[in-house]
């Protein structure tokens, strides 16, 4: 009986952890963009196939946009699905930029999905994601 209970606890734990991470991610995304409709595509993510060092993962984001006063990207939001907290960064862009492109370095604690949302001045939200594999986890916890 005790053995069975232990097994159940071990089985249950990862699922609970995954559910918590998904909740935190969907909450963070909802707080960021509200209930605006989201369409996939229009964003190119440049990431390594395998991040050797999760503490310094290069990330390049290029969003398709004319970057004119009328039609430009206003914000790019980056989330990581399995970090202890999902928020990575928000970039605020203006039409003074030549293109909607940002390069940075991020932390990933383990293998997970990276999600990028881009908001346009016309009220649209674009989404792209990438499955990330991490060698040594970033120093998050």
């Amino acid at each position: 009986m005790i053995v069975r209970r232990t097994c159940l606890a071990l089985l249950a734990l990862p699922f609970a952890a995954v559910a918590r991470a998904d909740d935190a991610l969907s909450t963070a995304m909802r707080e960021t963009i509200g209930d605006k409709p989201v369409t996939d595509g229009g964003i190119l993510l440049r990431v390594p196939a395998l991040a050797e060092n999760g503490g310094q993962v290069p990330l390049g984001i290029v969003v398709e946009s004319p970057m004119t006063a009328q039609d430009h990207i206003t914000a790019i939001h980056v989330f990581a699905s399995r970090n202890p907290t999902p928020g990575v960064a928000t970039f605020r862009l203006t039409p003074l930029l030549a293109r909607a492109e940002v390069q940075t370095r991020i932390r990933l604690s383990e293998d997970q999905r990276l999600i990028v949302l881009a908001e346009t001045s016309t009220g649209r939200v674009m989404r792209a994601s990438a499955e990330m594999r991490v060698g040594a986890g970033g120093c998050l916890s």
Partner: peptide, 21 residues
């Protein structure tokens, strides 16, 4: 205002950013 970044926990040590003007 040209560009800004708001950092959360997932931004790496020694924050590095590239953009184009």
């Amino acid at each position: 205002a040209l560009f800004s970044a708001d950092f959360q926990n997932g931004t790496a040590t020694n924050p590095y950013h590239v953009f184009f003007v």
